[in-house]
Design a protein around this nucleic acid. Structure first.
Lengths: 214, 214
DNA sequence: ATACTTTTCGAACAAAACGGTCAGACAGTA
DNA sequence: TACTGTCTGACCGTTTTGTTCGAAAAGTAT
């Protein structure tokens, strides 16, 4: 790691600290510089603008979120419903470890307008959504083929719906901070998504009554 | 409660919210006004200045701290050591519920200078210290007379020492946020303060061995 | 309706803080 | 010595800040 990279990293650490606690507007470049023990002008040697620092650390947050979710995907490949449930739980926990994004969400809700900052975050978020859409569609394809989910929904519909529902619940998560409420909501959602094939239900009931007799 | 008092209270609630989250510098009067649904100029009808709002809500925080500690003092009058230990625990827990003061402490540690704000808070804090000193001196007097604490220290010394030690530990508390570490430190401190009168120890040992024989 | 008081606020102010620039200083090094 | 990457103090134009003031509005008692 070169010296320049080390300095850049140091600046980013200061930025994470401040953006995470104060948000974009309330953090000044001078403050980042002081915390990184550099002059304000030095910050502009390593970064183009305040916004580019913000974008950089925000991207990092989403990168580590992706990494965590990739781990879940690899770890769990058996039952699609179980898998999805686990995925959503980890997703929630990891999102609560994203202070900069959480702060942005809160700011957005109360201030209603952040201009170019919003545009930047939306672009990062769009990449993440598309990445996640691809996964959901894959889960949908496999799940529908196996009969775990109803074959009346197409994988594309299935994935799009999930992405949008999760976006809504996310706001709730950051505003209320009530992870337990969200957990049960996720569980209920997965439960509803699972296709209760009438034939299978009858079959299962038959099995159970047979087990009772034994 | 008159209308003016209600408005004042409403403004103070907004101020508590913002000062507690953002600190003094990062909170603007306009922001307080918006949260209280008043024009900025209206704030100055009810308060002299931004600093006077800050002083007001900070004093409130110390007032409720005092109230809690007075409750402990009344509840517990038996064993001086036990009493002191309980007092310190409640003191710590209650201090963690003082967001504005906590925020001020953090700011002070990283910024090193806040000028007139520091002067204001120091004055409030001085009142509290003197109030607490009087209690510690009283506990010292009674404790030393009863032989719980060593009679080689004077009540004044005893109280002054406690006030200063607590001030130091307080910084640790706000910086690390590790209340468990502080709890054991407090316990150890009280343990050390208790006077292990050699005569009493011998006496107690004799009693115990007598109990063994029975 | 009248006159008087209390409360609110838009507009304006000087001062400060803001993001960002630039010319030059400094340190390593070939 | 000349060159390269890194740092910084001073500065700029703009926006935000705390605070003031006169007048509008709301409330109240006569």
């Amino acid at each position: 790691m070169t010296k320049a990279e080390r300095v850049r990293k140091n600046i980013k650490e200061s930025a994470v600290n401040l953006f995470g606690r104060l948000g974009y507007e309330k953090t000044s470049v001078d403050q980042i510089a002081r915390l990184a023990r550099k002059a304000k002008a030095s910050i502009y040697y390593h970064f183009d603008s305040k916004l580019s620092i913000y974008r950089d650390v925000m991207e990092d947050e989403f990168r580590t979120l992706r990494k965590s979710l990739e781990d879940v995907r690899e770890r769990c490949t058996e039952d699609e419903a179980e898998c999805l449930s686990e995925y959503l739980m980890v997703r929630m926990e990891e999102m609560l470890k994203m202070p900069i994004y959480a702060n942005y969400m809160k700011d957005r809700i109360v201030n209603h307008t952040l201009g170019e900052v919003s545009r930047t975050v939306r672009s990062i978020r769009k990449d993440f959504d598309e990445w996640e859409y691809r996964y959901f569609r894959h889960v949908g394809e496999v799940g529908i083929r196996k009969g775990v989910f109803s074959d009346r929904v197409y994988p594309d519909m299935f994935a799009r719906m999930l992405v949008n529902i999760l976006k809504g619940l996310e706001i709730q998560l950051f505003v209320t901070d009530d992870r337990d409420a969200l957990r049960s909501t996720y569980e209920a959602m997965v439960e509803i998504l699972i296709y209760r094939n009438p034939a299978l239900v009858v079959c299962r009931q038959a099995n159970e009554s047979q087990n009772d007799k034994e």
